[in-house]
């Protein structure tokens, strides 16, 4: 099977700092892949390169067999790469409804279908449990709900690859359980690349785990293998297995 996403020698420096340093990475379709690593390891920078938010210093990105290294971000979104922000970046002054309507209406090709936007928006809000708050300005939602709104916006893009950057940050435990269910459901129709710090969430969701450290991939494997990997424990998990 051909990977959905491949990077070759992908690098990005900020001044002298090599935030992402020659990363070779492959992701199979249908997979849920977790990316872990200590703070500042380059996880956000790596997925930002994939989504096109920032430009690489060198290297190549291939999505579904096509070189997308030089495509602008919006064109990658149209190919099916959706990115949800680590730092919540919803449209604070617009209602939750309008926030989701933006991605929904973009994926609709039939401009005349009047009810289609509403149906699509409400479906995405239902899935994330925000339907009752559709008319609240996004800025007035609780932090956890804003995180979920980010996910709803990503979902509404009908992506083939959904990149979630620390989506459970700020969620209550009860909300995390729902979130795990939600990601399982999303994974039926999309490949998921999930940056997470919350180990229980990773262990429940991930098919495979990639560990970043200092801009490089330190290890990659099944959750079990990663848990037992001594190097990883050293760099990231401390000493507790």
């Amino acid at each position: 099977m051909m990977p959905l996403l491949t990077t070759k020698g992908l690098s990005r420096s900020f001044g002298g700092l090599r935030a992402v340093d020659g990363v070779d990475f492959a992701l199979m379709p249908g997979e849920i892949r977790a990316v872990i690593g200590p703070n500042g390891a380059g996880k956000t920078t790596f997925v930002s390169l994939v989504s096109g938010r920032i430009q690489p210093s060198s290297g190549m990105i291939v999505f579904d067999g096509a070189d997308i290294t030089n495509l602008p971000a919006y064109a990658r979104v149209r190919l099916g790469v959706a990115y949800t922000f680590q730092i919540t970046s919803v449209f604070a002054n617009l209602s939750a409804y309008d926030n989701v309507a933006l991605p929904v209406q973009r994926t609709l090709t039939d401009g005349r279908s009047k009810g289609a936007v509403r149906t699509g928006v409400m479906a995405a809000l239902e899935r994330t449990g925000l339907a009752a708050r559709a008319h609240m300005p996004a800025g007035q939602l609780s932090y956890g709900h804003q995180r979920l709104l980010e996910v709803a916006m990503g979902l509404a893009l009908k992506p083939r690859l959904l990149i979630l950057d620390e989506p459970t940050q700020g969620l209550a435990d009860s909300e995390i359980d729902n979130f795990i269910q939600l990601v399982r459901e999303i994974a039926k129709s999309a490949t998921v690349l999930l940056i997470e710090h919350n180990m229980p969430v990773i262990m429940q969701l991930a098919d495979r785990i990639t560990v970043f450290n200092a801009g490089k991939i330190l290890a990659e494997g099944t959750p079990k293998a990663i848990r037992e990997n001594a190097e990883v424990q050293q760099a990231y998990l401390g000493t507790t297995p």
Binding site: R53, F85, L157
Partner: peptide
């Protein structure tokens, strides 16, 4: 719908790009 996109650009252009616009 176009008006909604314009307001989105006013509110946060980077985010609007990341929704495929």
């Amino acid at each position: 719908r176009y008006g909604r996109v314009l307001v989105a650009i006013r509110e946060n252009e980077e985010r609007t790009k990341m929704l495929g616009y």
